[in-house]
Every structure is written in C-alpha cells, then in structure tokens.
Design a protein around this nucleic acid. Structure first.
Lengths: 355, 355
DNA sequence: GGTTCTTGAGCGAACGTTCGTTCAGACGGA
DNA sequence: TCCGTCTGAACGAACGTTCGCTCAAGAACC
C-alpha cells in the first residue's frame, strides 16, 4: 500500500514533451500530435503506471463524473437491489456512485446532502420514501443538482421513475378474486406513502369493479418489515376472522404474514391465500412459494440512471412519472399450484436472474 | 436545479478580506483572526450559501476524505447490511463512500479498481469473497491504498475483520448434538471460501469431540442462494435419508432448505432440525422461526471503518484477523421451542415505524 | 525612546489537470 | 525570394482551495 501516484508532468518529462501535450494524447483525441510522439507518450504512461487524477480534472472541467445515491437504510431488500443496479448502470456509463444511507427517521438527511453537495456530484438519484416528506433531501433534489427519484418529491418538478402501482394492486386483487375470494384483506406499507395509496386504490377499484365493498377493517397498516406485518396480520385476523385472502405490500412483510397466519392455526393457501409485491429471489422458496407481483427493480435502476444522465447533459426530462410494467408471478400461496404437488409452480430458470 | 456554487473568493470579496483569510475562518481554526471579522465572514458565507469545494480542497491536501467500498453484487443480504453500516460509520467520521458492486464472476473488478484509483480514494474496504481469488481487486488492496477486507486476501498483508467462523460452526453443531442428533448434515457456501472451510472445521471438530465421524456425504456445497440450497438439500436427503439435522451456512439458504425439507414430506424441526448463520431480520419470522448463529454485521462494519481509518492515519494495524464474537439465537427450527406454542421464541422488540 | 513581541491580515505558491492560444519551422506556390 | 498555409508542439491561464511566510501596527518591556 501507500503507493505514490505519478503525475502527467512526470510522464511528459520522461517522454520529452510538455505536459499539456501529454494531456492531449492521454485524453484520447489525437489532435495535432504526431503518431510517434503519441505512442511514445502512451508507452511511458503505461510503464510508469500513470493514473489520471480525476480530482484535478474535475476542478477544471467543473463536473465530477460522480452521482449521488440516497438510499433509505436498506433494511428493505428491494431498495438494496435497486441500488446495485443503479451503481452498475452508472459505472457502465463512466460514472461513479457516492452513496448515502438515510436513517429510517431521516435524521441524517442534512449530513448526506452536505456530503454530496460538497463533493459536487453531477446529479442525484433518490431511493428513499422519506423524500415524500419535505426535508433537506427533498430540497437538494429540487434545487441543487439534476435529480431523479423513485418516490414523489413535494414540489413536483423532480422526475420520477417507478412502476405502475395501481396496476400492481389491481393485478393482485383481481387474481385473488378469480380464486373466488370475497373477503380480501391487505397488509400495507405506511399509509402516508404514495406507493401504498396507489396500490390501495388499485385494490379498492378492483373490489368495486366486482361489486364488493372495500372495508377499512380489512386494511391494516404496517412498516415494510416482517415483524410489523406479523402484528398487522394478527390484528387483521382478529378484526375479520373470516378473511380468506391477504394482499401484502412487499415480500419481506409476506414472510411475517405467512408466519402469523400459521400461528393462528390457518393454512396458506387453503384457509388464507396470499399475494405479495416485489418478487425478491427468496420468494419462490418460501413455504408455500409466494405468488407476487414482480416489480422490475433492475430495469428501474437502469432507467433512473439514463434519465439522470439525460438531465445532466441538458436534455429536457419529463416530470411525468416513467412507469415500468409489472407482472403477476403465480406460485402457490395464492392457491394456484396443486397443493399435492408440493407447493412450487413457477420456478425461475436458475441463470435467468435478470440484473 | 442547476444552482451555481459560490466560491470562497466571492465570500471574501463581500466580506472585504482576502480569500485566504476567509479560508482560515471557514476551516474552523480561528487562528489569528479577530472575532469580528470571523463572524462577519461566517455571516456572509451563510447568506451566500457557501459550500466548500471538496474537489479543490482534495487537490491541495492530497487526500479526498473518501473511501471505496467493494461489495459483491449483494444478492447476499448480509453483505448489503454490512455495506450500510460501513457507509454510516464512515460518514459519522467525516468520510464519504464510493461504492462498486462486483459482478458474481468478478469480471468488472478492473473497472471498479480503476474508478476508485482515479478518484483517489484514501482507502478501500472489501466485502466480496472474490478477493480470495487473486485478481485486480486483490492487487489494489495490497498495493495501492490502505485497505481492510472481510475476506482473506492472498499475500496476507491486508488486515481482515470478521467473526469467529470456527466458533460459528461449533456453536451450531454443538447445539444440534445437544438435541440428540447424530446424523447432522451441512449445506454450505462454496468450498473454496475460507469462511466455509472454517465453519466446516468447527462442525467437524465438534462432531469428533462427541465421538461422531464426519462423513462427506453429509456435507453439500451450495452457492449462498435459496435456490442452490434447495438443490443441495435435495441431494443431501437423497444421499443420507436418515439425516435428522442440517447446519446451513446462511439465512438466505435456510429459506431454500426449509422449502426443500418440506417438499420431501419431512417436518422441521420434528423430522429435520435446522440451524443457520447470520440472523437476518426475517429469520425469526420464517416458519418455523429460524435458529441461527448471529453474526454481528453492523459491528463488523464499524470495526472495519475504524481499522481502515487507523491505517489511513498511519497507525500500524495488525494483520492478525480481528474476530468479533458470535452468538447462537435459539428459536424453533432447532427444536428448542415447544411446538405447541406455535413456533416462536425469541422475538425482537418491534422497531419504530418511520418508513 | 528604542527594541522586541504579539496580533491580525495579506500574499505567493502549489496541487494536477484542461483548454484555447501562440509560435516555430517546413512546405508550396507565385 | 517572399509570403501564406499547415503541422506539431509549447505555453499561459484557470479551476478553488490550503498552507506557510511576510508584514504592518500597536503593545509591552527595559
């Protein structure tokens, strides 16, 4: 360790040219340099192990080639999947990612913002529901740099990418209804979140479309965690013991729902059917295998990066949310699979995990 | 968006002092400046919304206040938990984190290394098993900057933090033996990984200590994923159908194990007991609740950062691995809980609901 | 009243680049 | 022979800081 970096001046000196000439060559554009000096410079640079100093470059170019990623604390598996795809997509396009994990209560938002601004990121991607509450982070996204968010930012001018949440609620509910369920409960994320409200709207609209009356006793708020979901499920089954199906707002909570349903002596899907959202890799291996609406997290990350880079390079970006399509994956927990078959239905081919 | 940053010169001009004086004041140390000019400068800086330009600062200071985090692709939930704690610990200490997610096959290692070097990170933390194979990444860790790794880096001089893996294997195995099991299988991570070999050594040593002969049919290699673990479990139960207990190498795989054991018509823990490693938040909500050896990921992240910063500031750091203690968490899957009680035993206090 | 200290502030240089302009020489055409 | 053009390379300035040195003026001392 502790290796000294060689500067472009040393390369130039050893090659017998001015450092500005070396700079031209090393930056690719062979403008106005003879082929032989160019190759000579390249050779010297290579032999000396020259590594361009992005810091100096950034100073004069006034862009850093770095974007910020504000992720919520990432107890949420889905967000960490999104983050990975953002980083990889950004790197493929020549950008580096500076990451900040927002505490659950958003208390360190100001710190993260300061860090990103002082490091002069070219843009920011936010994957933290907390931005919906007005805060330093929301302020940053609106005013300092180009930004793209997974969640709606108050004020409205920040482009949003995501998936069609209303459709998500509709798909899940429609499917449960097609299995003959009439008392369909829901274990949701926090009500104040837009995702949650959109999914709930899809759920309610679908009930109404089938002449079923939504009832508030059937909808219980939770906090995206298995523990919160277990508690919510207990409450739901106490309030409406006749419930025969539950629409859960993410796969992590589905684990808690499955657990609690079992704890009350009911069986999934025989007594209570379950459909969730996300389709995390573990979903198909839960017992029973989880039916869930697949949210294209990887693709969303890529689109977020594309949108941000467009916005950085000055292309106008529509503030209209960019919604990617979702897809219902039927496994066993909804009642689709033959119970005798042992539970699993759609199994993904092992290598086809698109990311 | 697109906000222009104000420089220290503008602040100085408005305050009627030289920019170097403003610099002194803004850097905290009130060295040799009268209280009144100091407060005047501060006031102007604040009113103008001055944000120090870390880029310029880094150029002259020759340190960036940024560390690199090389994480494997993070299909592994545990690694993403570790990453979060690293970032938060680093930020608390004034450092920012530039992250690179290594593809499973390590193919983009060179890209990540280039990104980190060119951005002149002050140090690197690696949380990617791939560093055990010699590669560009291993090379970076050894030669370019101070580094700390979660995994052993060939060559040996890179400090390692982690937990006591032998003890992990011992605790799990000992506990299963205490329940009376004699045919204890194991579904492991890839054999070529040190973690895996250490855990296996703990497992075998414990068997031997109880006069039981380890048998290779009982140990099946998997790939840390639920799917791989399900396949491995199928193989294990075909080879040794009398198996009554399984030691699994992480919680994600435990999901697959639970699934496959059920698929063969066996019950957990009645027919086959299961103990795993990690203790991810979902573990206690699996059905049955998972008994698992808790690996202190959060603490490990903090220690990694501390060690790295020591190494950056020149304090000698021992190459001896720093091992944090692990702890067995007994729930139901090992057979500890009264089955009639519905399965759950240790339940963590419910976290606040702020997301 | 002269010398030394102390305090407050200014100033030059440097960090490693990029970018646009300038310059020296070779070559060609009239 | 002279001028214009073109090519290859050098050069100056700037990006926004930090850091150490210098310096003026007043205070303190003998």
């Amino acid at each position: 360790m502790a290796r000294r970096y060689v500067s472009i001046k040393e390369v130039a000196a050893r090659a017998g040219v001015s450092f500005q000439t070396a700079s031209k060559v090393l930056n690719g554009g062979n403008v106005r340099v003879s082929a032989e000096t160019a190759t000579r410079i390249m050779a010297v640079a290579k032999s000396l192990g020259y590594r361009p100093n992005t810091i100096a470059r950034s100073l004069v170019r006034r862009t850093t080639g770095t974007i910020g990623l504000i992720a919520s604390d990432a107890t949420d598996v889905a967000i960490s999947h999104f983050s990975v795809s953002v980083e990889q997509a950004a790197r493929r396009r020549g950008y580096a990612v500076l990451v900040g994990h927002l505490a659950a209560d958003g208390a360190d938002g100001a710190d993260i913002v300061r860090m990103l601004i002082e490091r002069r990121v070219d843009g920011v991607i936010a994957a933290a529901p907390q931005v919906e509450d007005d805060s330093e982070v929301a302020q940053l996204l609106r005013t300092y740099v180009p930004a793209v968010s997974l969640h709606h930012v108050p004020g409205g001018q920040v482009p949003v990418v995501g998936s069609n949440q209303g459709e998500t609620g509709r798909l899940a509910t429609e499917h449960l209804i097609s299995h003959g369920h009439r008392l369909i409960g829901s274990v949701t994320g926090p009500f104040r979140r837009r995702v949650v409200r959109s999914r709930l709207r899809g759920y309610e609209a679908t009930l109404l479309a089938h002449d079923m009356e939504p009832h508030e006793d059937l909808v219980v708020e939770a906090d995206w965690t298995p523990g919160g979901a277990a508690a919510a499920t207990r409450l739901l089954l106490e309030r409406v013991p006749e419930t025969t199906a539950i629409f859960v707002h993410n796969d992590a909570m589905a684990i808690g729902v499955l657990s609690e349903v079992a704890a009350t002596g009911r069986r999934v899907p025989a007594d209570v059917a379950v459909v969730s959202c996300d389709d995390m890799p573990f979903a198909e291996y839960l017992t029973p295998a989880l039916s869930t609406v697949r949210v294209p997290l990887g693709a969303t990350g890529e689109r977020a990066v594309d949108l941000l880079l467009q916005s950085i390079t000055g292309t106008a970006v529509s503030a209209e949310p960019l919604l990617l399509p979702v897809e219902l994956i039927n496994r066993s927990s909804c009642g689709c699979a033959d119970p005798a078959a042992g539970g699993r239905m759609t199994r993904r081919p092992h290598d086809e995990m698109t990311r």
